[in-house]
Each structure stands twice: as structure tokens, then as C-alpha cells.
Amino acid sequence: MSASNVLVVAEHLDGVLAEVTFELLGLGRALASAAGGKLEVALLGSGMDQAASHLGGADRVLSVDHASLRGFHPEACVAALVQVLTEHPARTVLTSTTSMGMDLAAALAVRLQRPLIAYAQDARLEGDLLVATSQLYGGKLLVESAVEGDCVLSVLAGANPAAAGRVDGSPEVVAVAAPAALASCRLQWLEQIKPPAGDVDITQETVLVCVGRGIESEDNLPMAQELATALGGAVCSSRPIVDNKWLPKTRQVGKSGLRVAPKVYLALGVSGAPEHIEGMKDAGLIVAVNTDATAPIFEHAHYGTTEDLFDVVPALLERLR
């Protein structure tokens, strides 16, 4: 029954599978089992044999091998996935909300004329309906959607356990011929650029003081730095701080930054959008300081206060002296 199959789109950089691929495989297995279908995984790249050996969580690997897929190439990937789905129909396509997944999900939905549910944190079948809950508005609201029939689901990275999909050993690998369109892509991938070595490697720190939008001004960063120094840690930040160029990219925690798991994570004026939570939820102790009592960060922190950070931090510094 091809119609009840689930297709996971594997994500990798240079053949190294991203954590989210296993998260999708875990969720995909639950959906495929409920529908009585197979779980298949699309592996797009060039020379990807090694990666297939980690995809034992799927029933089959559908592999497209082509030089144009050497680096992540949105146009080529979409064309290849359309080909994969033409030859191996699947009712549900699972991608993620990462930088890569974002370039695929909506494009596939339009090309295949399927509905898309994005930012899903979970999904289940209710009879013929696929029901998914999306985290929207910076994680402040959840929206439950239902679709019947074929669909694309874009799943939040970090929302599902990776262990459920991590099975070593390669399942059957089926080669799918690269479509002709891959030879005539308009977009050209030129090169991959590794991040420059940062002044501080925030993934190695024991204590992180994270500043978010609530820090208000670049002028207030020295206060956060002073606190980090007093605690023997480093300053990191959420995305808006880096987008404003107040701190370098090497200090950014979250989806487009780094995943960290320090012993202590002190979040100052961080709202806790899903993209940020993804990067820090495994910290040992999370303390959140935010005047907005409805900020999603409080869902994920162990301790919190709605006292103003500009009162709390000086008091904290005083106490640590």
C-alpha cells in the first residue's frame, strides 16, 4: 500500500547525517505503523553509501546520487524529491524546519499540490486524518491542524526524540535515477565555508549567560559579560542579538547557531522561541529572567523570575563579589 507510506527526507552536511533525521525517522515510524505502511527515507547526495549504513530506522533508503547534490542545493533537491515521490509514492512527507528543510517543504507542497503543515511538534493519525500541532508566534501559541490524504509535514527540530529513529545497519537501498532537470539547474552551489574559529567555543563552556532581545542595547552587554566572568563562564545570545551584529555568529545559540548543553544556562531577556529552545534545552540548569510572564522560556526553564534583568543582574553581581 504505497498510499500509506511515509517518506523522511534525510538531512546531512558532507554526508554526516543531522540529528533531526533520526527525530524524523522516529516520528515517521509511528505514523507508518499506524497507517500500515512502509517508512522510507530519501537520501540525496553524491557518494552517500556511508550515510545509508546509519539509516536502519527506515524500511528502505531511496537514494539519488548526482554531482549537483554534492552540496545542499535547494533547486536540485526539490527536483530529485519530486522524482523520488513519482516513483515511490508516499502519503506523508516529513521534512524539518531547519535551514535545509525550510527550502524543501513549501517548495514540495507547491510542486506536488499538497497541503503543508509547518512547525509541527508532533503528528498522529485519527482515522484518515493526519493531525499535527504547530508551534507558532514564537512558541506562544499552538495550532492544531488536520489534513486528509497526501501532505507535507515540516517538523520542528528538537521536538521529537532522536533515539527512536537511530538504528544502525543499512536497510535495502534503492537507487532512483537522477531526473534530467539536475543537469540544468539555474542556481549554482559554489562552495561550503566552515565557521571561523571563535574567540570562545560556547559549546565547551560550563556556564553560559545568554542575552536576548530584553538586553535592549549593545551598551548593556558589558554587564552580562561581567556576570559571565564572575561565574566563570561566557556570554552567548539568541538570534536577534547576532542579527543586529552586537555579538559574532559564534556566540549564537539555536537553530541557525550552535547547540549547547552547559551545566548552567542563565537566560536574560530571552523569550524562548522554538528555534532557541532547540539549541539549549539539554542544559543542566536553566534559569530564566524575563519580565514577560508569558514568555515561552518559562516552559523550559527550571527556575524563573519576572523581575527586571536590570535589577537582578546588579544584585547578583553584588552577591558574587
Binding site: L116, L141, E144, F298, E299, E307, A315, R319
Partner: peptide, 28 residues
């Protein structure tokens, strides 16, 4: 056609933070 919205709701606190009580000094 868009996927049907069934409901919009606020997340129920997962594990949820223990909110610290007292004055600024107590909290610090």
C-alpha cells in the same frame, strides 16, 4: 485550500519553571 485549523491554544507548561519569590535581593 489550507489545512483545516481545529483549535488554537496556549502551551500548557511542560515541566514549567519554579518561579522564584521575594524581593530582587531574595531572587538574586
Amino acid at each position: 485550500t489550507s489545512p483545516e485549523v481545529r483549535r488554537v491554544f496556549r502551551p500548557t507548561a511542560g515541566r514549567g519553571a519554579e518561579m522564584l519569590a521575594g524581593t530582587t535581593e531574595d531572587v538574586a
